[in-house]
Design a protein around this nucleic acid. Structure first.
Length: 294
DNA sequence: AGGCGATCCTGAGGGC
DNA sequence: TGCCCTCAGGATCGCC
């Protein structure tokens, strides 16, 4: 489920609630959810949670022991802090018991009904970066106009497909790809390399602005997404196109269209997001301006 | 190179 | 109430 704003919201709430806490016990209930060493020490038993980092849709939990966990939430994953007698969520694959510096007992639950996410264990944050983050593009929240323009110039794919490719830009998923394309007035099927550089810059600005606005609202809540505090996101109501197929465009009131592009349901406004003019072969003799090929 | 479909899973929602 | 179908925030793989 979660895209960059939701993952960053989880990271922040986790840092606030469990930062500095020590791992008292580890209960790994579904070993297959973890890749790499699966022993207690690899899962940070006895260590203190020191730093929480994020790149795109992935979170790194770095302990004072130097060890690091990489968490990818997939479609339905969540990291939830439970206090007191709070009920444990269903599909909890790992449960950590923590003790905060102030002495409070907390539980941290890694939940993921569909199990498209996962946890990877590493001896160090450097190892994590090498194994999992080295191939990711720059984080979408701070991607530069120049980087996105260069990345798009290098591929012929539909721009929507390019935005979903985490090697080009990290953190954009199906919701924010559609939202940013709408905000920039770019048709999702526009061939990436044919997008004018000026429009690629505008798209980069739209990506940053859309993600920042959603982050400010605590992300989007579709179905079961919750942050580490179990709070729902407030951005869903502000979606201009995602989930609004056949509804009126917020800008021109025209009917929003949808189709499967890059294997994902895509919604856009046919009037506000024009298709590129199709290339037509020049026909000789029709106009004095028609180029004659040698 | 990249489109496409299948695949990994569970759950929600609609139609009947 | 239940059954059957479709669809869902992600990402990878093999095949054309």
């Amino acid at each position: 489920m979660p895209e960059l704003p939701e993952v960053e919201t989880v990271r922040r709430s986790l840092a606030r609630r469990a930062g500095g806490a020590r791992v008292v016990s580890v209960d790994l209930r579904r070993p297959a959810y973890v890749t790499g060493a699966r022993n207690d020490r690899a899962l940070l038993l006895g260590a203190q949670l020191k730093r929480l980092e994020r790149r795109g849709k992935q979170i790194a939990i770095i302990a004072d022991s130097g060890r690091a966990l990489c968490v990818h939430l997939g479609m339905t994953g969540g990291l939830r802090v439970l206090q007191g007698t709070a009920l444990e969520p269903t599909h909890t694959h790992i449960l950590w018991r923590l003790r905060t510096p102030a002495g409070a007992a907390l539980r941290l639950a890694m939940t993921d009904p569909r199990r498209f996410g996962g946890v990877w264990t590493f001896r160090s944050f450097d190892d994590l970066i090498r194994a999992r983050w080295a191939d990711l593009g720059p984080d979408a929240l701070t991607v530069t106009d120049e980087h996105l323009a260069d990345a798009l110039a290098g591929t012929t794919r539909a721009v929507k497909a390019a935005l979903l490719d985490q090697r080009l830009i990290a953190g954009v998923g199906n919701i924010y790809a559609d939202e940013a394309l709408f905000a920039a007035g770019v048709h999702p099927a526009h061939p990436s390399h044919r997008l004018a550089r000026r429009r690629a810059h505008r798209l980069a600005q739209a990506i940053r602005a859309t993600l920042a606005q959603s982050l400010e609202a605590g992300g989007s809540t579709i179905r079961d997404y919750r942050d580490a505090d179990n709070a729902a996101g407030g951005y869903t109501a502000r979606h201009a196109v995602y989930g609004r197929s056949a509804e009126p465009c917020v800008r021109c009131a025209g009917r929003l269209g949808s189709a499967v592009i890059a294997g994902r349901t895509t919604v856009w406004c046919p009037r506000c997001q024009r298709r590129p003019r199709p290339w037509a072969p020049p026909r000789a003799g029709r106009s004095p301006h028609t180029a004659t090929r040698g």
